[in-house]
Design a protein around this nucleic acid. Structure first.
Lengths: 187, 187
DNA sequence: CAGTGATGTAAACGCATGTTTACATCACGA
DNA sequence: TCGTGATGTAAACATGCGTTTACATCACTG
């Protein structure tokens, strides 16, 4: 079993996709440095050497994994009316099946090369669209506020799990988060 | 030169202090993972093996370095009146000669062992005093808000330097930071 | 059906890095 | 002054890990 259902012979595209998906999970869970190529390929069920063959190395795989996650663009159909509530709902959705892009991104800060990649993707595919969506003269400062609050939240949920961040978000904290995000669009 | 002034023969205490100070600088600059023992001892001007002899290894050195930084307690003589302004002033003081504790702390998130140490020190020596100082029923939620904003700020200043965070903080962003910190004590 | 390139694997390689060991050298007391 | 322990150093060691290499196996085409 599991030989003709999820393994239709040999398929490079499918193998590549499996590695990419596994990489997103492992990178989100352990961060770039502690995520080993062997961890990723083991989860994907393939040989470790395929990372180099199909992606050109761990670093390129990271770039592909993060870029793919950011392509599921969050900024679409996001109304200004309940911006805060929607953002917090997305960030805390327990049914989410894909890795949180910001988790993967923040997990790259420890490696100088991965950090450079993450920084470029953050600028081009998050901050630029966000700043444009926010508009106005203070767009950049607003986008910075968005990143500060988001990053702080993800850091303590994923990287430094304190009591306040385990399980559902404490109601008063959630309310503050929603207000902080909403204030970014309301001024 | 530099042989009788800063090198008074052999002094274990002085050597130990030199390693500790160098560690704080290097850890703040490069993070725990990319900070090599050889980098630290080179800056201290001593042999690499002394890290293991005097501190018991890189991990213990990290713990000692972070604990020492946190001992320069920030929470003392901090009035509730201009809390926000004072905090931002401390975080952005260009004349500061010691490493920012939060920089060192956030640089440890990539290593699971260093992260555990950082998390414990953060709880015992930052959050507990802060929560006590804030007081009240919502003290923990307030402390969490403080950490979110602080962490977001340091992440983008040290780890993911965007244009908005290089050089002096943009005035409107600084104002928002001050207000956000002040609101934590004012409710 | 044969052959050839694509796909996948196991093992070895190379390198970086924290740690340990063996040895040298200085300081201080008898 | 002599010797002994503390202090410091250079080199070797051990190991984890990304990558490469050599080989096996499947799939498709003529």
């Amino acid at each position: 079993m599991a030989t003709s259902v999820d393994t239709p012979g040999r398929d490079a595209d499918r193998t590549r996709a499996a590695i990419l998906f596994a990489a997103q999970q492992i990178f989100a869970e352990k961060g770039f440095v502690e995520a080993g190529v062997r961890d990723i390929t083991a989860l994907a069920g393939v040989n470790q050497s395929l990372v180099s063959r199909y992606f050109g190395g761990k670093l390129k795989l990271f770039e592909a994994a993060l870029a793919d996650l950011l392509d599921a663009r969050l900024m679409t159909d996001l109304s200004r009316k309940d911006f805060g509530r929607r953002i917090v709902a997305i960030f805390t959705d327990p049914r989410r099946d894909r890795a949180q892009p910001l988790s993967v991104l923040l997990g790259a800060t420890a490696d100088s090369e991965a950090r450079a990649i993450a920084l470029r993707l953050l600028r081009d595919r998050v901050l630029a669209p966000l700043s444009g969506w926010l508009g106005g003269a203070e767009a950049d400062a607003r986008a910075a506020r968005f990143m500060i609050v988001s990053t702080g939240f993800f850091t303590y949920r994923d990287l430094l799990p304190l009591a306040e961040f385990s399980g559902p978000v404490e109601p008063r904290l959630r309310q503050w988060l929603e207000d902080a995000f909403q204030a970014i669009v309301d001024d």
